[in-house]
Every structure is written in structure tokens, then in C-alpha cells.
Amino acid sequence: MATEALGWWGVPLGILAGTLRGSVPFLLVSLGECLTEKSGKINLGLEGTLLMGAMSAYAVSYLSSGIVGPTLAPWLGVLTAGAAGMGLGTIHGWLAQQPRVNDVAVGIAMIIFGGGLANFLGKPFIQPQAPQLPTLAAGGWSSLSQVQSALQISPLFLLGVAIVPLMSWFFKSTRWGLYVRAVGDSPDAALAMGISIFWVRMASIVAGSFLAGIGGASLSLFYPGVWTERISSGQGLMAVALVIFARWQPWQCLWASLLFGGAQALGPAFQSVGIDSYYYLFNAAPYILTLLIMVATCSPKRTLTGAPGALGQSD
């Protein structure tokens, strides 16, 4: 064990590592929500989806490892998490599109329902250990064990990063992306184009929830790699808020998620080098930072660029 103390270098390294580890759920959930909101509906329920994804991924990975082996089992878990997300997404997509039903309200109810279901079904899986997803060791070049460990990259992180340009391209250059944007920006025009608003939104919500479910799998099968009822502690809600912060652009979702993942590591990293006062305030740093960035970058003169026109409108 060649563990040398890193001293102050531990802070930037910790933040880098925290960025790579902690940003995955933010990234996947915010990308999913980005797709959903582009179609003109909000799904606040992704917090519940995240929990359900985390629980089902862990449970399936644990239960199936005896049958399909510990290499395949976590991947089966990831798929299940996505499927569980789609299940919750279908409920949300159907309910939130009923006349006079508010999508924000359905979302909050879905947080409770999804979270409750995950906690209910997850009881037997808190204690056992499930096989974890493999990671790519990108730090093999370094002799420092700290660097090696910081550069353990999850394939789900790579998946998220790969989705970013894809989603960007999807919105800009594909027919289906156009449909989604049309439905989100001006449903009337979309209707005139002969697009089924209901099905486009349904598809967007279900696909978004699929990604959020996988985000949950990254919590329980990558980092921190356990299933407990407090595993998400508000990360899903925050990720949904990040989409507004990211102005509904996939690339900005990526930056925002990295910022949040890294900021989570601030408090512990500072304490480990002796800055041990005000840790509550350090822990609140990501929230304050986001607020300040928003204050600095928003303007009352123009409406938010990129905001889907139908978002928040009742239909």
C-alpha cells in the first residue's frame, strides 16, 4: 500500500474524483429531464424514479448474480432500472396529459409514490452486497494510488457523456427531434403538422424516465454503491432543477452536472486538509454557486432562451 498523504493536492484531486463519480446521476437525470421538458412537460417525479432505479438495479444485480454470474448481473440491474423508470414514466406521461391535470403536481405525487414503492420493495436488499458495475481504470499511468482511484470511470458516465452530443444532434438535425421541439414549443403548430402530441410527449417522458432509472442504477451499482432509502437525498430533484439552469441544452446539462458532482466533494475534501469550520456552508456551496451563476447570467429583458414554449402552460 503506497499511500502517501497528498496534503493540499488532495483538494483538487478530490474534486476531480468527485466530479467523475458524483456527477453520473445528475447527468443522466438531467439529460432525461431535458428530453422530457423539450416536449413541453415537466417530470418532477424523477426523484422517485431515481430511487426506484437504484433499488431495482441493486435488487436485480443481487438476485441474478447467482444465475447469470457477477459480470452480467449488474448490467441486468441497469436494464431493469431503466425498465422500472419507463414504468413510472408511463404513469406520469399518461396522468400528466389528462385535461386539467397539472404536471408539477403529478410529479410531486410520483416522487412520493416511486420513493414509497422503492423503499417498500427494497427492504430485503439493504443489507446484502450486490455485484457492482465494472469501472475503467483511466489512471493506470500514475503510480499514485489516489490518482488511480480518482480516475476510476464508470461506463455509465461514458454513456451519459456519449448521449450529450447525440441528444444535441437529435434535437437539431433529426425529424423526430423536430417533432419533440415542435410539440414542446407550439403544440398547435405540431397538431397542424399532424403530429400526435400525446404520443410524442409520452415517448419523451418514458425515454427520459429510462435515463433517470439508469441514473439510479449508477447510485446503487457504482457510487456510492449501496442501496439505502436515503441514497438519493434530493439529487433527483436537484437534477431536474439543473435543466432549467442548463437552459434545456444537453451540453450545458453536462457542465452543470460536472459542477454539481464536483461541488459535493468540497466539504469533505476541505475538512480532510484541516479546514474544518463552516462545513455546513461548504456543503451548501453547490446551491449557492448555482444561484449566483443564475443571478449573473439571467436577464429580465429576454425570456429564457431555449425554454420550450408550452412548458408550464396548461392545456
Binding site: 432549467i244 455546513y280 456543503n283 451548501a284 443564475m294 443571478v295 429580465p300
Partner: peptide, 29 residues
């Protein structure tokens, strides 16, 4: 913030929750 800076009120009020809780925890500790 909404009116004068155009900051989305949903996200800013959500963020303010975390700030308030952190402030309270800091003070009582």
C-alpha cells in the same frame, strides 16, 4: 430574482431551501 433578473423562481426557491437548512444547521451547531 424572478422579476428583476429573470431567474426562474422554481429553481431559485428550491436552492434557497438548501441554503436555509445549511444556515440553520451551522448556527445551531
Amino acid at each position: 430574482l424572478r422579476h428583476y433578473r429573470g431567474v426562474n423562481e422554481t429553481i431559485s426557491s428550491l436552492l434557497l431551501n438548501y441554503v436555509a437548512i445549511a444556515l440553520m444547521n451551522h448556527l445551531v451547531q
